[in-house]
């Protein structure tokens, strides 16, 4: 596919703890389309944050990418000649090496969840934004400062030429998240990863930040990977949605299909558990049970202990990715020919 920016194939990330191995990401296939917004949705602890950190190869110990590929199709659209063969496997790069460090902050930038603690309180926000510019460009300190002020202005920080010299703890959460966005944009990245950027903010600020991100995405022609557990946010900004459960992408489709005809029982349950204004008297319909203990994952389909539609085969057979239409895939035995699977597995 020519318009794929990042192609994740069978990515597995394990955490080697004293209590045992946690398979945080257990074989994820995911293609991110260039210029689109992909929302990665899931409950806390489903592995979505770890998976997106793998795109920058910053999974920290005791976590480790054990297998899989993350093919990053870079595009050099200038005179640099053959731009066709510029893809690189991020999972293979040395996490401390030069190559991946040149990608971080420059081609793939990231916005984090906690605007309170994601900036260091020891340095001004200007210092920390300029650091990114000076690291990846040949601009002088003066030029970097001017660019930083422009960026701060662009993300809607008032009096940017004064606030550039302000320490993070003197700014509000919303302002800090804006500064964080300015920092991420400073080298015009092709992919912006946002790990729950609005979760720690109040609702009004949330809406402002979402608007800002959508505008900037158009301006910079960026691809956006948006990690969230908030389906309202998904509906607002996503083009495509991938639903993650226990380290697997169990359903992926465009945003309309997902909200109109969700295929996986988990997605259906997730949508049902969202409160709607129209539904005044009915009680909410939460998903029953809890996310299983990470040290003892269920056999077969990971969702079967909580699934209302589970049947006998779900306990033993791990569902494969089934295509339900153009751009709509699901991992669920309801959509597979189970008898055929059982037959082939019995043979092997």
């Amino acid at each position: 596919m020519a318009d794929t920016l990042i192609d994740v194939k069978d990515l597995r990330i394990h955490f080697f703890t004293d209590e045992g191995v946690v398979r945080a990401v257990g074989g994820v296939d995911l293609a991110i389309t260039r210029g689109k917004t992909l929302a990665l949705v899931g409950e806390s602890g489903c592995g979505k944050s770890v998976a997106c950190r793998a795109l920058l190869n910053i999974v920290h110990r005791p976590g480790k990418i054990v297998s899989g590929e993350i093919i990053f199709h870079r595009m050099f659209h200038q005179s640099s000649g053959s731009g066709s063969d510029a893809s690189v496997d991020i999972a293979e790069l040395n996490p401390k090496g030069r190559e991946i460090r040149d990608i971080r902050g420059k081609e793939i930038a990231m916005i984090f969840q906690e605007p309170m603690t994601s900036f260091s309180s020891m340095y001004t926000i200007g210092n920390q934004i300029m650091e990114n510019i000076l690291l990846h460009t040949n601009l002088s300190k003066q030029e970097a400062r001017i660019l930083t002020i422009e960026l701060l202005d662009k993300v809607g920080i008032p009096k940017p030429s004064r606030l550039i010299d302000e320490y993070p703890f003197r700014l509000s959460g919303g302002m800090r998240q804006r500064a964080m966005i300015a920092m991420a944009l400073s080298c015009s990245p092709t992919l912006l990863i946002a790990d729950e950027p609005t979760t720690a903010l109040d609702v009004t600020t949330q809406a402002n930040i979402l608007d800002l991100m959508q505008n900037l995405q158009k301006q910079y022609e960026m691809t956006l990977l948006f990690i969230t557990h908030d389906l309202g946010v998904v509906a607002e900004i996503a083009d495509e949605v991938a639903v993650m459960y226990l380290g697997k992408i169990i359903e992926k489709s465009d945003v309309f299909t997902l909200f109109n005809s969700p295929a996986h029982p988990y997605t259906q349950a997730l949508l049902k558990s969202v409160p709607k204004i129209a539904m005044t008297r009915e009680a909410l319909d939460p998903i029953k049970g809890m996310v299983p203990n990470p040290y003892s994952r269920p056999s077969g389909c990971p969702f079967h202990p909580r699934c209302p539609k589970a049947f006998a085969a779900c306990k033993t057979i791990v569902p494969k990715t089934t295509s339900l239409g153009l751009h709509h895939t699901v991992q669920c035995l309801l959509y597979e020919d189970v008898t055929e699977r059982q037959a082939t597995e019995a043979l092997s």
Binding site: K96, T117, S118, H136
Partner: peptide, 13 residues
Amino acid sequence: KPYVETARAKGLS
């Protein structure tokens, strides 16, 4: 701390 992760995501050595 998260600020260390931020700095790492910038590509600092």
